[in-house]
């Protein structure tokens, strides 16, 4: 991709996992897109925040638990994961309820750093406006 155009991509996730296929499909698209070395951010709002809930155990429902895949995002240089504060609060969730997603910062001796950033509604609005491409799931 040397010399290629790098655009800012935002993937907006607004749905709970398992009840529909949107969450899993979004994750698939993000992982595919990561191969193209673009400037990728993920945003979780509304029921999308449920995708990041830790402790998912699908053994009783005969569905694939795809939540461990979010841990791999850091290895694909997807390390800007934004979560809407108000969406968490409406669902009585805090960051402690979410998976501790991290990445290794190659500019800081590969120090392990958290990928999740909880942001306000105003910050979400700004994040959307600064993108070249927004894909909503």
């Amino acid at each position: 991709m040397e010399g290629g155009v790098v655009k800012k991509f935002l993937y907006v996730n607004r749905r709970a996992p398992y009840g529909s296929i949107y969450a899993l499909e979004s994750l698939e698209v993000v992982l595919i897109g990561a191969a193209f070395e673009q400037d990728v951010s993920l945003l979780f709002v509304d029921d999308g925040v449920y995708q990041l809930k830790k402790g998912q155990d699908t053994s009783g429902v005969e569905m694939k638990n795809f939540s461990p895949t979010y841990n791999a995002l850091g290895d694909y240089d997807v390390n800007k994961i934004y979560v809407d504060q108000e969406s968490l609060e409406k669902r009585n969730l805090t960051t402690d309820d979410l998976m501790a997603l991290t990445y290794e910062d190659e500019d800081d001796d590969y120090a392990e750093k958290p990928s999740i950033r909880v942001i306000s509604r105003d910050e979400v609005a700004d994040l959307m406006e600064e993108q070249d491409v927004v894909l909503s799931f």
């Binding site: 402790g55 998912q56 155990d57 009783g60 429902v61 569905m63």
Partner: peptide, 9 residues
């Protein structure tokens, strides 16, 4: 219950 646990609740 299985749906509660699947969702990490």
């Amino acid at each position: 219950e299985p749906d509660i646990k699947a969702r990490g609740m």
